[in-house]
Design a protein around this nucleic acid. Structure first.
Length: 490
RNA sequence: CGGGGUGUAGCGUAGCCCGGUAUCGCGCCACAUUUGGGAUGUGGAGGUCGUAGGUUCGAAUCCUGCCACCCCGACCA
């Protein structure tokens, strides 16, 4: 491991790339655009999955699994949907290889599929085709299903976690008897995502709705949570869609209501992906490496012994192992690193790089004095604490770190939302002080598109709690009823 | 997919212009001394120079195709 990483002030994207690889989260694979998620990175994802999965179950959802492959004909049934995804689909055309006689393995031309299969970029079509057989009556509703899966979107440019050709995610797909109920579901799941982002990832988000330009292909309304990264760029962290009856109509999913009337069902879908890993990294980390919120850190506490000989080590280990037991009893994940192959300074740097929230160092001096040195990753402050009540202190400290990194991110974001009233000011701030720009917009896709072309800033969302306020569009000068949030985005 | 760049040991690199079988650092292995912020010394192992062709007596070096990665655009979670 080489010393140090590029400073995020010098080169933000290089800082990010080095962080991902040097903290052992992921690496590029032999397959273009696809990554290998390494054990340390995957264990963070598993923690995210566990927390989200529980939240889904607590809101009444069940997990299921649908196929990776989608017949091409399914895909074409919803016009907007196919148009939105057509340009980024991987297609399976054959099912067999053969030896061409010259020692080369080739695709067997005789093994062409009658109907090509699309590798799912999202599963609405296969799921709604399936739901047709599951739903007949209002008694079958609501149908609340989630699946954890991989999907493939053939992106032109990829970045570890933020945009990869294959990625992991969850996709919820629900069916309801009424429009209102489906809207309520879409909003409920948006709240779940916001709750997760803020309370687990310690990342403040803005809940909002997307403009028509940014809406999911096939949705009536797209809700989103938008986060702000430390370089002032926005990142869409999760989306929840009210799909109306679009997919029900496309796949002919009808139910008989209490009143005996036949109608198409109302749908939602919602998802978050391994992109959250990228968000987590960029939200809190610094030039020393990752900063992980304690609730998602695979290792919450590491104990490093400092010793001169085996006798010292034996003494320290006794105390350290007792602390390990106390912490484990409090459900804190702790690692006692007594490797003799690395020196303490190396270990300090390594665990800082990996974002372990709390480090405990114990040496001969501490054994004599009945103390330990506690270092917190978020502020890099060190304190000497007495051995009595140490486990309790650490437990409190972990909560404190969780709160502190949220506050820090919240403060940064609050400072990064700026009201702008002229287009010149808008353009100036985008370059000088990137962040969310709150500005009036006339509500037309044309103005939004022009602003995007000229400045690369897009409307991230119309905040759900937006106040109505009369004004004029910064681009067209036409009347506007409310401000929307613009930003350059990942 | 367009423009630019890069590919040499696990990682980072020199050598390429001017062709003669590969340099240095980190890491790795062994031993010793070390251990409160990325240890030091001595010895050692490790390379089809991204890949496939071509030119040549001879290619990391020159030529062509392909692949991958990075940066910048268009597309997007």
């Amino acid at each position: 491991m080489s010393k140090g990483i590029t400073s995020k002030n010098d080169d933000y994207s290089q800082w990010y790339n080095e962080l991902v690889t040097k903290a052992d989260l992921a690496e590029h694979s032999a397959v273009k655009g696809c990554m290998v998620i390494k054990p340390y990175g995957y264990s963070i994802w598993e923690k995210m999955q566990a927390a989200l999965d529980k939240m889904f179950k607590d809101t009444g959802h069940s997990n299921a699994y649908f196929p990776l492959f989608i017949p091409k004909s399914f895909f074409s049934k919803e016009a907007a949907h196919v148009e939105g995804f057509a340009t980024e689909c991987a297609v399976v055309t054959h099912y067999r290889l053969k030896n061409d006689g010259n020692g080369n393995i080739i695709v067997d031309p005789d093994a062409k599929l009658e109907e090509e299969l699309i590798v799912r970029p999202t599963s609405e079509t296969i799921i709604w085709n399936t739901y047709r057989g599951w739903i007949q009556s209002y008694r079958d509703l609501p149908l609340l299903i989630n699946q954890w899966a991989n999907v493939v979107r053939w992106e032109m440019r990829t970045r570890l976690f933020l945009r990869t050709t294959e990625f992991l995610w969850q996709e919820g797909h629900t069916a309801h008897a009424t429009s209102a109920e489906a809207v309520e579901e879409a909003e409920r799941m948006l709240d779940v995502y916001a709750d997760f982002a803020e309370n687990w990832m310690a990342m403040p988000v803005i809940k909002g709705i997307k403009t028509a330009n940014e809406r999911f292909a096939g949705a009536v309304e797209t809700y989103c949570i938008e986060a702000l990264m430390q370089d002032g760029k926005a990142l869409q962290a999760g989306t929840s869609h009210f799909l109306g009856q679009n997919f029900a109509k496309a796949f002919d999913v009808k139910f008989t209501s209490k009143e005996g009337k036949l109608d198409h069902v109302w749908a939602t879908s919602w998802g978050v992906s391994t992109r959250l890993m990228g968000a987590l990294i960029m939200a809190h980390s610094d030039d020393q490496g990752l900063v992980l919120p304690p609730k998602l850190a695979p290792i919450q506490v590491v104990i490093v012994p400092i010793y001169r000989n085996d006798e010292d080590l034996a003494q320290i280990s006794e105390v350290a192992k007792a602390l390990v037991a106390e912490l484990k009893a409090k459900n804190i994940s702790v690692k006692y690193d007594d490797r003799d192959t690395q020196r303490p300074g190396f270990k300090f740097a390594e665990y800082e790089l990996k974002g372990v929230p709390v480090r405990v160092a114990m040496g001969g001096r501490d054994i004599e004095n009945g103390t330990a040195e506690i270092a917190r990753r978020d502020t890099r402050e060190k304190q000497t604490i007495t051995r009595d009540g140490l486990a309790g202190y650490i437990e409190t400290l972990l909560d404190d770190i969780q709160t502190n990194i949220y506050s820090k991110a919240y403060k940064f974001r609050a400072e990064s939302i700026v009201k702008v009233d002229t287009y010149d000011e808008f353009k100036r701030l985008l370059d000088e002080k990137p962040g969310f720009l709150s500005a009036h917009w006339d509500g037309t896709p044309e103005s939004e598109q022009k602003i995007k072309e000229e400045t690369k800033a897009t409307i991230r969302c119309i905040p759900l709690d937006n106040e109505l306020e009369d004004g004029i569009c910064i681009y067209s000068g036409k009347p506007s009823k409310q401000r929307v949030l613009f930003a350059r985005a990942y």
